[in-house]
Design a protein around this nucleic acid. Sequence first.
DNA 1: TACTTCTTGCAAATCATTTGCAAATAGATT
DNA 2: AATCTATTTGCAAATGATTTGCAAGAAGTA
Lengths: 145, 145
Amino acid sequence: MTDEHLQKAAQLLDENGLRKTRPRLEILCVLLEADSPLTGEQVFERVTAGSVDKATVYRTLLLLLKHDIVHNAYLRNRIRHFELAHHCKPDRCHPHFTCRDCGRTVCLYQAIVPDVQNLPAGFLVLHRQTRLEGICADCRVRHYS
Amino acid sequence: MTDEHLQKAAQLLDENGLRKTRPRLEILCVLLEADSPLTGEQVFERVTAGSVDKATVYRTLLLLLKHDIVHNAYLRNRIRHFELAHHCKPDRCHPHFTCRDCGRTVCLYQAIVPDVQNLPAGFLVLHRQTRLEGICADCRVRHYS
DNA sequence: TACTTCTTGCAAATCATTTGCAAATAGATT
DNA sequence: AATCTATTTGCAAATGATTTGCAAGAAGTA
Ligand SMILES: [Mn+2]
Ligand SMILES: [Mn+2]
Ligand SMILES: [Zn+2]
Ligand SMILES: [Zn+2]
């Protein structure tokens, strides 16, 4: 939990008129340190041991979701994943790639996803998410040896 | 459960070397009749009342998933949704649109989703899913009156 | 500091899904 | 058609993830 992350966490809460409580700051720091979407369970494990209750983790993630500070990512299984929205545009999240071999999920920050064409008339799109599945670079190399 | 659907259901099971049991035929007919992805619970409700156990519904959906006869759709909540794969290409599902107002999900069979550009080197994409959120045509009209 | 309101921890509840197991059945074999 | 054997099913109980009720504890404000 670096000082820089703590600053950023406090700022996010301030901007949204939310109280700066210890659990919230810790949870935001965990999310700031993560390099891919986390489950509630994973956030719980990464927070300073025993310092935050699991119910509080979930309640906080839901609160941050409501304020659009975090987004849900929809990966392969039925478990919700959460990540900070700061790498997303208001109308779209960056795509996620999940490897069928090693199971890891990678955030594709630099990928370009063109708009969906030929939508039915009258539909207003406010948000878009793209989910890719396949074999990651590491696993492809591994299979050649 | 039309005769045509029953035929198709039997055919799907045959093609995959699966036994044609009454629960499987019923479940496939439910999926053939559905116009958007269904949860296990919804499949259970739509099957002839009391004729199939809920555990069997889930076991069957998982079996059909393994044989790529159905796909999972990832919608807003943490509940898995299932739909027949016959409207999908092997490497991509048609997009789904979920209305933030009425909550309905629409299958966008005719939409065109261009490929993702600028992927990191060495990644092999085997499957893609696109999820849209916004306001559906009906709800937009409703809000103008 | 005192106050008011929001937030937390804890325990229990809920929801979706999965599992163990004995009875039932599909499809192959006689 | 009756028999056989591996699969499949129903039922009840277990599981895993998430949510809720409530009294005690903090945050922000006066
Ligand atoms: Mn991401
Ligand atoms: Mn669909
Ligand atoms: Zn991999
Ligand atoms: Zn709508």
